[in-house]
Amino acid sequence: MVANAPNLSEQIDFQIRTAGPMSVATYMGLCLTHPSKGYYRTNDPLGASGDFVTAPEISQMFGELIGFYVAQLFQQMGAPNPVTLLELGPGRGTLMADMLRVLSRLDGFRAALDLRLFETSPTLIAEQKARLADYNGKWITDFDQVGTGPLLVIANEFFDALPIRQFVKQADGWHERVIGLVDGERRFGLNPSPIPESSIPEALHDAEINAVYEVALAGTQIMDRLARTVARNGGAILVIDYGYGRTQTGETLQGVRRHHYADVLDAPGETDLSAHVDFEALSNVAARAGLAVAPLATQGEFLTRMGIGERTQALARANPQAAADLETARNRLVAPDQMGSLFKVFCAHSPGLQPPGFA
């Protein structure tokens, strides 16, 4: 019986046939987090054997510098005990392990640490538990489980994987893009009824016909939950992801499979789906919750201000045989034509804190 169970592609098609076309957000949610067949439930997406490589997997320097960032905030906050350090989507645990190697040298931090990790992938949770076994971490599935003390949040390439809705400008207004079936094949279409113009940001009201507006309600909801907690208890939220600083039109939904771009409608559950992050939307939510928002930085600017050049030189002196590889890794992280400009670094924080790495 189990062997004949429908695969995810068949389940999605059945849902469309019985309930009608589904939103892009519903489709993304099923593809990525279906309880038994979603991409993040059945795959290890990282590294050479996966579909993408993240900054922590490129160099230990990335995690170490974020560790320095956390250390400075911890000291600015008066070394609170306890302090919750929460990572969203921790991957293989590489980023957190590199951070904690730095932070464990800081007086009082190890004793104060309440480590929490938000993850849905059983495969990745197993790797995280093995790599972070010495730190007594707690894996959570709900943001009510973050504790009651000051909260420091790290999210590297997390928000880009949250479901988005897409709206397309037509002569009579904005219509939501949906996914239906045409001759048995999944195809994009439009909901026939336009949404109220008031639902679209005012800056986009004069958009051209066929312009696409993407909104990540899941992302803003998560930011709202975390920002309200930080506003109440103190702390900061650091988000590193690819995206844009101002709300704008443009279609950014993409699929990646085995390090190559893939049709987002093909192979549900086998393809990584993501979209660029609207940092202005996240900023507005955080500000409404009462947080201060640092000027958005590029990843290259942030890592340079945090001292990646000096760290590269120090590691090269200690490991001369690795000097060329270290410089290659540094360039990959900060060069404008690699990850340096595409990736942005966002920080929302308690008023009064001065997060390092921002202008």
Rank of each mutant, 00 (worst) to 15 (best):
F159W: 10
C31F: 11
R332E: 01
F14W: 09
L151K: 15
R258E: 10
I125R: 09
A227L: 06
D13T: 00
L73H: 09
P35Q: 02
A297H: 10
N233Q: 14
H205M: 08
G255R: 09
R305T: 10
L333M: 03
N81P: 14
G235K: 10
G219M: 13
L226W: 03
L88N: 05
R257H: 15
E280G: 08
A111S: 11
A112T: 13
R110Y: 13
I209Q: 12
Y69A: 06
S121N: 05
T18E: 12
D114V: 14
V182N: 10
Q170P: 06
R177H: 10
L113K: 07
E176M: 14
R177G: 05
H259P: 12
A126R: 08
A97D: 12
V53L: 12
R232C: 01
G108W: 01
M99S: 06
K169I: 02
G184D: 06
P268A: 00
V277L: 08
G290N: 01
F358Q: 14
A236L: 04
N7Y: 12
D142M: 03
L103P: 15
Y242P: 13
L333T: 03
S9E: 04
L95Q: 04
L282G: 14
F346M: 11
R187Q: 03
L32A: 08
G29D: 14
G245E: 11
A335F: 00
F167H: 01
R232N: 03
A324Y: 07
Q15E: 01
L30W: 12
L8K: 08
C347E: 03
I58R: 05
A25T: 07
M28F: 14
E10D: 05
A48S: 03
V285F: 13
H349L: 00
D325P: 05
M99Q: 09
L217W: 15
L333G: 01
P150H: 02
V293C: 06
R165C: 09
I200M: 03
T249F: 03
A322Y: 05
D224Q: 14
G234T: 05
